[in-house]
């Protein structure tokens, strides 16, 4: 068994097994403290909002440590930062005090317009420099660990000069930030773009992995699409085991965004993550909610 660390990359607290917080599963998620140690929020669902959104957030905070995983920060964009986004994210973090926050290695807006989706970056040195500078700005502004997530992508640009793993590793090193490793995204990309999936993992600085996403994808005639709308595939479970042998993340979680089933159908997947976590790192010691909040802060 791998020796369990006291803290993860850049001092992030070891949280254990988590789940992406979804409105339709809120109550069951709050009651599942036997298998869940933390939850991940999508900040855009709460930023600048009151009412039920704020109420759900407060309920989750009372039970679990929270981490934040954004979809529209647009880290790779050449637009200036959206001042409203930065302001509202700060206001949210003042309330939530996440242990870390993450977004994708993509851009999601340009010319002050939003795709509200994740568009891949070109892979060359100028792009590395641009993204690394943007991540440093976030680290300076928020003063909590910043992670970037490896995205799935469905198009390659003719000007790409680096492989995806070299591009990702270069940014991680140059920005000195953590990695949110989405194992399913690696599998989807490896299948669609004909990579050697284990060679991809071996080329990454896995000591920088703070968080791991597990999710399902959907098969189409044209290839795999990272829909988060199906159970995790067996091949992706095998890859999680492979990755956990080589690093100590602070948290591993299940993501489900489409075709969300009853919690009872997600539970076996969470239990499987828990079993793999305990196989590699041992049992997570539970802490009281107040203590958890301090830990997360």
């Amino acid at each position: 068994m791998t020796q369990r660390h006291q803290a993860g990359f850049q001092g992030t607290p070891i949280l254990g097994v988590g789940l992406g917080l979804r409105d339709s599963l809120l109550q069951e998620t709050l009651e599942a403290t036997d298998i869940l140690d933390w939850v991940e929020i999508t900040p855009e669902n709460y930023m600048g909002k009151g009412g039920l959104a704020r109420q759900r957030l407060e309920k989750a905070m009372a039970v679990y440590p929270l981490v934040s995983h954004g979809v529209s920060l647009s880290i790779g964009s050449t637009d200036p930062w959206d001042p409203l986004y930065i302001q509202q994210l700060k206001e949210l973090f003042d309330i939530v005090k996440p242990a870390w926050f993450s977004d994708h290695l993509t851009f999601s807006g340009i010319n002050s317009l939003y795709f509200n989706d994740l568009i891949p970056m070109p892979r060359h040195q100028a792009s590395v420099n641009h993204v690394a500078e943007r991540i440093k700005y976030l680290q300076d502004t928020f003063q909590i660990p910043v992670l970037i997530e490896n995205p799935s992508f469905y198009v390659n640009y003719p000007d790409n000069e680096m492989s995806d793993e070299v591009y990702l590793a270069s940014i991680l090193e140059q920005a000195d930030c953590g990695l949110l490793l989405d194992v399913n995204n690696v599998f989807v990309n490896a299948t669609n773009h004909h990579w050697d999936v284990k060679a991809y993992f071996d080329a990454l600085p896995l000591e920088r992995v703070v968080q791991i996403h597990m999710a399902g994808h959907t098969e189409y005639p044209e290839g795999l699409v990272d829909t988060h709308g199906a159970p995790v595939k067996e091949a992706v479970w095998e890859l999680l085991d492979y990755v956990l042998k080589q690093c100590q993340p602070s948290g591993v979680m299940l993501e489900r965004d489409l075709n969300i089933p009853p919690f009872s159908e997600l539970r076996p997947e969470i239990e499987r993550i828990k079993a793999l976590w305990e196989k590699h790192y041992g049992v997570i010691r539970k802490t009281a909610p107040r203590k958890r909040k301090e830990l997360a802060g």
Binding site: T78, N111, F115, P122
Partner: peptide, 9 residues
């Protein structure tokens, strides 16, 4: 990067 992003937009 900017030229590519603007035209994708």
């Amino acid at each position: 990067v900017k030229e590519l992003q603007q035209q994708l937009g």
